[in-house]
Write a protein that binds this DNA or RNA. Sequence first.
DNA 1: GGGCAATGTGTAA
DNA 2: TACACCTTGCCCA
Length: 277
Amino acid sequence: MPEGHTLHRVAADLRRRFAGRVVESSSPQGRFAQGAARVDGRVLTDAEAWGKHVLVTFDGLDDVVHVHLGLFGGWAFADASDEVPPVVGQVRWRLRGPGGLADLRGPTACELLSPPQVDALLARLGPDPLRADADPDRAWQRISRSRASIATLLMDQAVVAGVGNVYRAEVLFRHQVPPDRAGRDIGRATWDAIWADLVVLMREGVRTGTIDTVRPEHDPEAMGRPPRDDDHGGEVYVYRRTGRPCHVCGTAVTTEVVGGRNLFWCPRCQSADRLTP
DNA sequence: GGGCAATGTGTAA
DNA sequence: TACACCTTGCCCA
């Protein structure tokens, strides 16, 4: 269940459990057998997230393990005191150490990268709202010149790294931006507000592990509507709420497949005449 | 037990 | 635009 906040949590968990310690590394499933063997018995030195990518480094090895979860991948952690879980299903990579255990399942990418390959990977990522060194102006340079819709641009990892389908829908709702508005028609002030909001929302996501975007004054429970009518773990305005009433105006939330992904928005709160570029 | 959707990305046409 | 890939869980019979 990966948007950027999930991967920053994963990186932090890997650091907390394994950094500075020797790890046992294996690939129960076998598809990462060679890579797992290369790092087995080494000291794990760091784990860091860049957008939706996680990079894990080891002492005495220039190559880096690169993990990308894709749509279905996931990490499962267990404490050292817990019983070692049997290898169930398809565990691509298992790490064990004094800090516990980590199982990786279903990733799109789990591979060793050379330093130039890592450079190339990072070079094609836009700024990540969760990184202190991120420069939102880099994203603005792309957005302000693009005829593509802001909904498409927010999902483009070369424009902004770490935003996924939930944050994109929610942040556009929070700023009353019609999803089909072209990037170049967004306006600097609106972009600055969207970026600042992404920083706040995604940091909160790292802290809690869920995506909660509804402001207290729109809390559906407080407004007499059933809470938590979604299954992704947090309270949201529009994501996967097709046909249900908007928490602000009551209009039915709309959905449409755009670029192969489901896009959700409120046709009233995010109608074109509500936003001046 | 089958069918399907899912917070993603890359390639080819 | 289509599809290929990775895996799980939930819904339905």
